[in-house]
Simulated assay, not measured.
Amino acid sequence: MTEPTALRAERLSSVAAAARILREFGKHSTQLGVSQLARRVEVGKSTAHRIIWTLVAEGLLEKVEETGLFRLTTTMGSLGASAETSQRLHEAATIPLDQLRRKTRGTLHIAILDGVDVLYIERREGPGAIPLFRAVGSRNAAHVTSSGKVLLAFLPSDRQKRLVQEMRLTPKTPRTITSKSDFLTELARVRHQGYAENRGESQPGMCSIAAPIRDPLGQVVASVSVVEDVEEVDRGLHHLIGPIVETAARISSGLGWTQ
């Protein structure tokens, strides 16, 4: 039985609208609401609502409970990076990460920015590995991690400010930065010094330090970090600043970046 022309046209229209909605997330790499998406793709709010929840049911979008907005799932976000780039990053990071692992008992990560979260795409575990971060593909809020600070600090100023304004700086510990102006000041400091620290901001007694990984054009595309449980949070991981910055530089060099 042949599908009626009108019904076929309606289905094709919905598919086109779904594609436009997904492209909006690709453009902005952030969280968006039903009304925003309806306005941007020029469809009715009820139509946008129906399509968005269909995409959620299919595992392409997910709702963020804290904000009530929607974002690409990890699977869809991963599709945004080319397989070639991902493979090159893995190859460039392998030897430097293995060498850094000999200098610390902590867990090493390579992370990328996914909206207002960090997404961990590579790891090396040491004897002091923290179970919370063992799985590649896990996320954490960018504002409570050294990786997130690095990735946000080196964004273009307008995009950085837009993302920070969209963030909810939910406290994970009493040390979490919850003021947006203070957080922007922290990002400026990170950009100036070339690395970021997390001293008990995401989990009590846990510290991390991260540095930026650059592509051949000098753009920051990922971060490398080390995380450890420490006895004195205020001291942080100061002794690993040099090694982590050197590791980031070596991975960047492997990607084709030259200072």
Rank of each mutant, 00 (worst) to 15 (best):
V245T: 15
E197F: 01
Q87I: 03
I213P: 01
R189G: 09
P127I: 08
L12C: 06
S157G: 04
P96H: 07
V221L: 02
A211E: 01
E91P: 05
A93L: 06
K161T: 07
A196T: 02
T73R: 06
R40K: 09
F133C: 04
A142Q: 05
L113G: 06
Q36C: 09
T30N: 11
R235Y: 14
T74D: 14
Q219R: 13
A17N: 03
A153L: 07
G194C: 11
A141G: 05
T178L: 05
V190R: 02
V190M: 08
S82N: 14
G205F: 14
T74C: 12
V230W: 15
T178N: 08
A222P: 10
V233H: 01
S157L: 13
W53Q: 01
P96Y: 04
S35K: 15
T258P: 10
K45L: 09
S202T: 03
S14Y: 09
I241E: 15
D117V: 03
G68C: 12
R189K: 10
F154N: 03
R50M: 00
L60V: 03
V245E: 12
G44A: 06
Q160E: 15
H143W: 11
V224M: 07
R159H: 14
H239I: 02
G80Q: 13
I209Y: 03
G242A: 09
P156Q: 06
W257C: 02
V226I: 10
R175K: 05
N198T: 04
T73Q: 07
V64A: 06
A249H: 01
L237H: 11
